[in-house]
Amino acid sequence: MTGMVEKRGFGIWLSHLGMIIGIAIVCFPIYLAFVASTVEQQDIVHPPMPLLPGDRLIENYSEAIFSGINAPVWRMLANSMVMALGIALGKIVISILSAFAIVYFRFPGRKTFFWLIFLTLMLPVEVRIVPTYEVAANFGMLNSYPGLILPLIASATATFLFRQFFMTVPDELAEAARVDGARPMRFFIDILLPMSRTNIAALFVILFIYGWNQYLWPLLVTTDPEMNTIVMGIKQMFPSGDDVANWPVIMATSLLAMLPPVIVVVCMQNLFIKGLVETEK
């Protein structure tokens, strides 16, 4: 069937060629960063830098991981991991519980809660940074994990996703559970949670990347280099003034910063695409 439009192979080969060129352009910045992370500082400060990897891979990466510039990179990786997991799991837990409450119960003020949660869709953290920072400071949450995590889980995207999904769950299941005299939480744990597995996983992928890639909020909340996350910590590795940046270590850190989310996206590609399409709907 599909062969009909492009009967001649020429068009297809042209597409392959265009695709390869496109991918080469898109991947080039990452490749160049990789090369820079395997050579000596001398190779970079006397341009043009080499286009093939050097032999300093192990030295540069171990320097980054174990000593870094302001803080060892393993420390920043650990902070990022805690923040990304905290945001992903925290948001999933609070959202699935409140979606369950909103969909499966009738109680006074239900509509009001629904709209209050809906409103939070509208205001990214970038817009309310100064007052949010003051709240975090007043709670003594600066340089702490709760301070990194909590303000970023105050949004309703996940709640909506679960609400949409619960609406598609057949009523008969809840009916049967009720007839059997099952308590609501039994129904939630035994039926609803297992049915939501793929939704939870897809959302986890999206939220993990969202949390890992945060920049502005960690920049404000963590003043102690030991609490820096890796994505914001890279910028802090550039010297102020006229000193020359330690490019091989900075580029090694950049590669390490993109590794966990890239692994998540590439390994869970299908869940990732499902999550992407559903969170944007």
């Binding site: 898109v26 890639n213 920049y215 914001m232 950049s254 890239v262 996206v265």
Partner: peptide, 13 residues
């Protein structure tokens, strides 16, 4: 697969 890489790279990176 090769084209979804940049999505995972933080804007700051």
């Amino acid at each position: 697969t090769l084209l979804i890489w940049p999505y995972a790279v933080a804007p700051a990176v």
